[in-house]
Design a binder for these strands. Structure first.
Length: 495
RNA sequence: GGGCCGUUAGCUCAGGUGGUAGAGCACCGGACUUUUAAUCCGAUGGUCGCAGGUUCGAGUCCUGCACGGCCCA
């Protein structure tokens, strides 16, 4: 292989591979064929012969036909070992010049790490006991033109792993495992809800009025209608319309979009489960949430004790329940008197470093106090209950206590994982609350939603669960970027 | 938004106090027909993130910027 010395090192590596590509073509070999019949996965081969002793394999000489990516090469002169990986597993290949013949041996010598190949051969065991395919037939399925990440360490640079996720997935098995786990989590949640009579629905992602949460939306525009539209910040108000329409148990498991900052806990688009259950209330939802999360954890990671940084999260039921107020008192040196009126709350907030104190409502201030004192310390699953009404415009008040609502948030590993209410279904009260919010500077009144409520919505419990954060907990990953395949990153120069 | 840290070969990483930029893997050549992070021998490979500054001389010191990581708000 002649190499142009003036080229950059990466270009030289690519040039080497392109030269091999051309040699293959000159031999009349199509390096990107349309199809190759695969009889079984590598995993299936391992399953079939994993326990079969060497002598029996020698007798049976079982033939297999498999395909995958070449991940390692160990040459031995006129023979070689290689590792072939497909989506299911890895298996060793043994290639011998005398067994393959001149032509196929020449093809083999033109392969690089990362190439996809199909092989036909006989399963045997090496003297060290490794299950191996002695290759008889070799087909190039796709030539790779760029070098693979380092074989032992894989790709470790966090930025590169996120930007070129495919390299992360193919060189870091644990990364692949975590994303497979994510998929199993989502699947397990769907099965759990379906088995409890919930119907999966799809409501609009583009809203004429952003609602259902307080967050800045992404704005887009529909040309034909000349209409401003907002990517949804929550599906809540549409799902409730379905309760009005007579669906009693619905869920939606899909993306929300919030035009806010990016952090280890926030990505602008994130996956949320929201479900609504007629005739349920927040007490029932707490039990249901415990059951949902523990059964999903057992089904996917198979344990209720999961490592989280230096700590261990114990998912065993029942989970702790604590009012917002009690949580503040327990996790700070504040006493009940510090929360008894506005001036004392402000003084406490100032002492704890809360910013923009004056512009926050009483309820918001209480929530802030919770965030700075208790939130990060709630490691084992904890329901924080009974939120101030003025920060919960869609939740029903606690009977006899109009300033407090039947709402809980679930915290695990210091992360807010779920948010649920006994839903407000009194249309007149709902109008007052939303008008209050609009007056305080919070968006536009959704008259269409109020119209629906006026037709009657049954008493309902509703909940949202942040799926990315749940996956973070189940995979012990501290950053949301590690559980989203393609997290939003700032484009690099030249992109 | 603030603080700290990082950015060196395709990948993984070294490079006290400023003095011609290194290793391992990969790649290339050679030896090797049961290895598995194969081994052995040899060779190639660099805009040291970018732009300025200080200096006889900057990967190293200073400033700014970009991207990323962690922490704080």
């Amino acid at each position: 292989m002649t190499v142009d010395k003036a080229q950059q090192p990466l270009e030289q590596l690519i040039a080497n591979r392109r030269a091999k590509l051309n040699e293959l073509k000159e031999m009349g070999i199509e390096p990107y064929p349309s199809r190759f019949r695969v009889d079984e996965s590598v995993g299936a081969v391992r399953e079939r012969f994993g326990e079969v002793p060497a002598e029996e394999l020698e007798e049976r000489t079982p033939e297999v036909r498999i395909a995958g990516r070449l991940q390692a090469l160990r040459g031995h002169g006129k023979a070689a070992f290689a590792d072939l990986s497909d989506g299911s597993a890895r298996i060793q290949l043994h290639l011998k010049k005398d067994r393959l013949g001149e032509e196929r041996w020449k093809v083999f010598k033109l392969l690089d790490l990362g190439d996809f190949i199909g092989v036909e051969g006989v399963v045997f065991r090496t003297r060290t006991g490794e299950l191996t395919v002695a290759v008889d037939e070799l087909t190039v399925l796709a030539k790779s033109l760029r070098p693979m990440p380092e074989k032992y360490h894989g790709l470790t640079d966090r930025e590169a792993r996120a930007r070129q996720r495919y390299l992360d997935l193919l060189s870091n098995p644990e990364s692949r495992y975590e994303f497979e786990l994510r998929s199993r989590v989502v699947s397990a949640i769907r099965r759990f809800l379906e088995s409890h009579g919930f119907l999966e629905v799809e409501t609009p992602m583009m809203h004429p009025i952003p609602g259902g949460a307080t967050a800045r939306p992404f704005v887009t525009h529909h040309n034909a209608l000349d209409l401003e539209l907002y990517l949804r910040i929550a599906p809540e108000l549409y799902l409730k319309r379905l309760l009005v329409g007579g669906f009693e148990r619905v869920f939606e498991l899909n993306r929300n979009f919030r035009n806010e900052g990016i952090s280890t806990r926030h990505n602008p688009e994130f996956t949320m489960l929201e479900f609504y259950w007629a005739y349920a209330d927040y007490e029932l939802l707490m039990e249901f949430t415990e059951e949902l999360v523990t059964s999903v954890a057992l089904e996917t990671v198979g344990s209720l004790d999961l490592p989280w940084g230096e700590e261990t999260i114990h998912f065993g039921r029942p989970w702790r329940r604590l009012t917002l107020r009690d949580a503040i008192l327990e996790y700070s040196d504040l006493g009940p008197e510090d929360l008894s009126d506005r001036p004392r709350m402000e003084a406490a907030a100032r002492r704890l470093g809360v910013e923009r104190i004056e512009e926050r409502s009483d309820g918001k201030l209480l929530a802030e106090l919770f965030e700075v004192t208790a939130e990060s310390r709630l490691i084992d699953p904890t329901f924080i209950m009974d939120f101030p009404r003025d920060i919960s415009p869609l939740a029903k008040s606690v009977p006899g206590d109009p300033d407090t609502v039947e709402r809980f948030e679930l915290f695990i590993g210091g992360l807010e994982v779920a948010n649920a209410y006994t839903e407000l279904n009194d249309p007149l009260e709902q109008r007052r609350r939303l008008e209050e919010q609009v007056k305080a500077g919070g968006g536009t009144l959704d008259e269409d939603f109020l119209l629906a409520l006026e037709h009657g919505m049954p008493p309902t419990g509703g909940e949202g669960i942040g799926i990315d954060r749940l996956v973070m907990l189940l995979t012990s990953r501290a950053s949301i970027r590690d559980v989203i395949l393609f997290p939003l990153l700032r484009p690099r120069d030249g992109d």
